[in-house]
Nucleic acid binder design. Structure first.
Length: 225
DNA sequence: AAGTGATCATAA
DNA sequence: TTATGATCACTT
């Protein structure tokens, strides 16, 4: 386990060392072996990359690099270079999120500065042979920020109103609310429309691939100007 | 093929 | 159970 990077330069330098490495190569370097079963690999590269880069927030609901206030996200890409999965952002405290503001929310805290690490996600490439790409240090631009805020406000209002059961993943332009649970039996507290506590699936905020695609596209534009 | 809902692993 | 890290797999 590396110590936390103390500067952005140091963090980016560490990313450059990972660039081009396959999952197998990085695993070997860190002394880990890749889980045999596909089902046991969910989130595995994310953990490995955290260790490789020295992320230190661990299980806290705050950005991975506490000092730098930077959130780390792997971004699996298909063979056309487009994101092939949505991106989990943060879990939702259903009972208290209504008291948060956008500025104080964990969605804002995490998305205001993200280190995207593209990785090959095409399932036709064997897991060990998938490679790590070039990191992108990113912050939302004005219009992205405005849309994220609007999505957040709308979804949080529904949660506040106890409309949990009517919220589905089709709502929200960039942000969506989806279950984030171990399984269908793991329940947490939420409110119904009458303000009564009910047991419901834990939920989380996710970013649609249409949004992360924008991140990649803007990055491309920056480098060709 | 895309997108939603469901699920897997681990730490505290 | 709640937080982290996400991807799986079924429906549309």
């Amino acid at each position: 386990m590396k110590t936390a990077p103390t500067s952005i330069d140091e963090l980016m330098a560490r990313c450059r060392l990972l660039e081009g490495l396959s999952f197998g190569q990085l695993a070997k370097k860190l002394g880990y072996s890749i889980p045999e079963l596909q089902l046991r690999r969910k989130g595995w590269m994310g953990m490995l990359v955290e260790m490789a880069l020295g992320a230190d927030a661990k299980t806290l609901p705050s950005p991975d690099f506490k000092q730098l206030q930077i959130e780390l996200k792997t971004l699996p890409l298909d063979k056309q270079g487009k994101p092939c999965e949505s991106t989990f952002v943060t879990s939702i405290p259903l009972l208290t999120i209504g008291q948060e503001s956008w500025q104080s929310s964990s969605v804002y805290e995490k998305l205001k500065q993200v280190l995207w690490l593209p990785i090959e996600g095409d399932r036709v490439i064997s897991y060990a042979n998938r490679r790590i790409g070039q990191a992108i240090l990113w912050s939302p631009d004005e219009s992205q920020l405005a849309q994220l805020k609007q999505d957040w406000m709308e979804l949080v209002e529904l949660i506040q109103l106890g409309q949990l059961e009517s919220i589905d993943a089709t709502m929200g332009t960039f942000l969506q609310v989806r279950p984030k649970a171990a399984n269908g039996k793991s329940l947490c507290d939420g409110y119904d429309v009458y303000g009564n506590k009910i047991k419901t699936l834990p939920r989380g905020f996710y970013l649609r691939t249409s949004f992360t695609q924008q991140v990649l596209q803007n990055q491309y534009l920056c480098h060709t100007e």
